[in-house]
Write a protein that binds this DNA or RNA. Structure first.
Length: 764
DNA sequence: TTCGGAACCCTTTTT
DNA sequence: GGGTTCCGAA
């Protein structure tokens, strides 16, 4: 294959990105600019034209889907040699490394991977040992603090140092919990998701020779969605890339929407200073959307300050105007969306509905099913979260990993075999006191009566069964066979029948059947299907393998989930202040910018036609709320919109903003314009206050809370109002004299009250 | 040991 | 409003 074939059909910039084979390279890839295409061609070029051994290339992605697609498309270009490349997610690459060398850190090659549930269970044990009050230290608080620390590359000891002088004494308790939690993981021969990355970096730090061997091996490193990398991923990439620095990162700072998961936009913003010799390529031609959609999206994102600055352009036609619908309430909004879908010539599969929060999906579901329009919801409750599925998986984990006490704990009395809380506590205490694992303690039961008779007999039976399953596993039985044996051995379906109403029991049995099915399906694709490999697959490749038939269905999902996808016609709903942008982002300009990026991501998913809508009234947490149209809507020029509602209020508000724009030359609409929809006031004082508001929310440093700045009412504190009664402060707006508090009242819904005027009392 | 009802809490969630 | 979790009674 010659070079011309490898770059055929690429535009000049894309070509440049493909041909820059050595040294650091930053590919800034705007939405719809052919990013994947460039990556795939680049890999093919390295292998087919430069003669690079595929085993010297590692490509890191965030999702399994992205990894799969990349591998498949490389294979299409250059054939099966692509198989020997490392193309996988950060987590599965790290897992692979740790399976090989984890024993250096005290883990076996069969370590368990703990998800949310197991993490919580372990943390509860830790909290119990430390005598922590659940009200003071909810498990969620602990887990997010620990997760955050790991994302930042901060281990338990370092963390203790970090919080040693912290003003918040709770953090020192967290430090203790963190330490115990990590010990617990090690004892259970388990790692959580954060650990997969964290321990890999720790491994490389501790064993430089090992790092050297991987550095030697991976001559070319490629990272997808670089804007979403967190600190620990950043470090991992950095250490692997030295000293050759053949590091190619691809991303779009305007699509960074995961800061709340530890992603650092600075990683991509600072790439050029990290690697001064870096080549930078900008893919700015968009092949996806109409010019109208793109213009509107560009206007929205232009209001952000923290960005590289990039203007997407397209040769596509301008297409239809963006439909704007200001709904009376969410039912009205849903009616509009459903009507447009049902009267369209397009197929259901051409549509997508994007919302900010999952809670918004219900009303669209109802509307669609009333009209018998097929739809699919991406996200929500997952198959692998079902109790009965997790039970069975816990059995498999116990068979696979002797030290996994959390999974063992889960199944001790499932199905019920007369082992009560007291017996379990007894065993745990005994195990702790004698430095034994839970499994070792159970084995002792044969000779020692640690628990009362009935429980003892039952547990001895369980031990015997587990031993037998482990033997089967060692003899090389397939996971599905072992699984069937477990189900029969414990009489699972009989138990399900007995302890649920018939309909639920039926559903649960079907879930179990589906799990067995999935295991068999997986086995068919494997050369050597081992139990350990299956469990790894379940933990990391949490595939919701359902939406393959989505082609003829309307797709409903959160905007976060929509990143990377595209649809002919998109409905972006719920564009209201307080919801999108969410009121939690008001106090922090960085969060507000992230909300704006989210809006940008949502808009740029649309190929042909975009609808945007907002509700004036919406029930939030069961209570009614009055909402103003999102500032993002006002950042889009009116002439790009086609009004689909008969409500004149928005037009007036928007017209007011347009005037102000004309007057001040500023794009960012003043929030004063939509304070009272339909009655935009021209009073200079009002707009000055509005601009002041914006200044505060647009600053890149976090807004400082001065003493007279409402700091007596920090977000989250409980307050009482003489008229509205009790409530909780959700946020703060404005500065100086003009501080307003965003308060959710228990009985009266959400209000924005001026601190100066409102009769507020803080409650303890 | 199990259940039912009160209490609680609520963005987003690639792994 | 709705889902989950937790605690106390049977």
């Amino acid at each position: 294959m010659n070079v011309d074939d490898l770059v055929a059909g690429l535009n000049p910039v894309q070509r440049e990105a493909v041909l820059a084979s050595t040294g650091p390279l930053l590919i800034l890839a705007g939405a719809g600019s052919g990013k994947t295409r460039v990556i795939v061609h680049r890999i093919a070029y390295l292998i087919a034209a430069q003669g690079v051994d595929p085993r010297q290339i590692i490509a890191l992605t965030f999702t399994n889907k992205a990894a799969q697609e990349m591998r498949e498309r490389v294979r299409e270009m250059i054939g099966p040699v692509a198989q020997s490349m490392w193309i996988s997610t950060f987590h599965s690459s790290c897992s692979r490394i740790l399976r090989n060398h984890g024993e250096l850190l005290g883990f076996s090659s069969k370590f368990s991977i703990y998800g949310d549930k197991e993490q919580t269970a372990l943390l509860k044990e830790v909290a119990r040992k430390l005598n922590l009050q659940p009200t003071m230290f909810p498990t969620k608080y602990l887990s997010s603090a620990i997760e955050d620390a790991k994302n930042r590359g901060v281990g338990p000891d370092e963390y203790a140092v970090e919080v040693h002088h912290a003003p918040n004494p709770k953090l020192r308790v967290v430090a203790n919990a963190y330490k115990l939690y990590q010990q617990g993981l090690l004892e259970n021969d388990a790692l959580d998701f954060g650990d997969l990355l964290f321990q890999t970096v720790a491994l490389f730090n501790k064993f430089p020779d090992l790092l050297a061997s991987y550095r030697e091996r991976f001559n070319y490193i490629l990272v997808d969605e670089y804007q979403d990398t967190n600190e620990i991923q950043y470090r991992l990439i950095g250490m692997l890339a030295e000293p050759k620095r053949n590091l190619c990162v691809v991303g779009d700072d305007d699509q960074s929407i995961y800061s709340w998961r530890g992603a650092q936009i600075k990683n991509i913003l600072d790439f050029e200073s990290d690697y001064p010799e870096a080549k930078v390529v900008r893919l700015e031609e968009n092949y996806r959307s109409t010019a109208t959609i793109l213009n509107a999206a560009n206007r929205v994102i232009a209001a952000n300050k923290q960005r590289k600055g990039k203007d997407l352009w397209t040769n596509n036609q301008s297409g239809e105007l963006i439909s704007l619908y200001l709904a009376a309430n969410e039912a009205d909004e849903a009616r509009y969306v459903v009507k447009r879908i049902s009267t369209s010539v397009r197929e259901p599969g051409d549509f997508a509905i994007f919302y900010r929060t999952n809670a918004q999906s219900r009303i669209f579901e109802e509307g669609l099913s009333r009209k018998a329009i097929p739809y699919t919801i991406v996200g929500g409750t997952k198959f692998y979260d079902r109790a009965e599925v997790r039970d069975l998986l816990a059995y498999l984990k116990v068979v696979n990993n002797e030290r996994d006490g959390i999974s063992l704990l889960r199944i001790l009395n499932v199905p019920a075999r007369g082992v009560g809380k007291t017996s379990i506590e007894h065993l745990q205490t005994y195990a702790d006191a004698n430095g034994l694992t839970l499994w070792q303690t159970l084995e002792l039961l044969e000779s020692e009566a640690l628990v009362r008779g009935g429980a003892r007999t039952a547990l001895n039976g369980l031990v015997a069964m587990i031993r037998q399953w482990r033997r089967q596993e060692q003899e090389g039985r397939k996971p599905s066979v072992i699984c069937a044996d477990i189900l029969a051995g414990i009489g699972f379906s009989a138990w399900l029948l007995k302890h649920n109403d018939p309909i639920q029991a039926q559903a649960r049995q079907e879930n179990i059947a589906e799990l067995l099915n999935a295991i068999e399906l997986w086995e068919e694709e494997q050369e050597a299907p081992s139990l350990a490999a299956y469990l790894e697959n379940v933990a990391l490749i949490n595939d919701d393998h359902v939406d393959s038939a989505a082609s003829s269905q309307v797709t409903l999902m959160t905007i976060h989930r929509a990143k990377g996808l595209e649809f002919d016609e998109v409905f972006l709903v719920g564009l209201e202040e307080g919801l999108f942008p969410g009121n939690r982002s008001y106090e922090n300009p960085n969060l507000l910018e992230e909300e704006r990026r989210l809006c940008y991501v949502g808009m740029t998913r649309a190929r042909q036609k975009l609808h945007m809508s907002a509700c004036r009234k919406r029930r939030l947490y069961g209570k009614p709320a009055d909402n103003r149209p999102s500032r993002f809507l006002l950042e889009i020029p009116l002439e790009l919109f086609k009004r689909e509602d008969r409500n004149a209020a928005f037009a007036q508000a928007a017209a007011g903003v347009e005037e102000e724009r004309a007057r001040t030359g500023s794009f960012t609409g003043s929030s004063s314009a939509f304070r009272s929809p339909g009655r935009y006031r021209q009073k200079p004082a009002a707009s000055a206050a509005g601009r002041q508001n914006l200044e505060v929310s647009g600053k890149s440093a976090p807004a400082a809370a001065g003493p007279k700045n409402g700091s007596a009412f920090p977000p989250g504190c409980r307050v009482e109002h003489t008229v509205f009664g009790p409530g909780v402060v959700a946020g703060r707006k404005g500065s100086g004299e003009d501080v307003k508090l965003d308060i959710i009242f228990r009985d009266r819904g959400r209000k924005l009250l001026s601190l100066k005027i409102a009769a507020l009392k803080r409650l303890a």
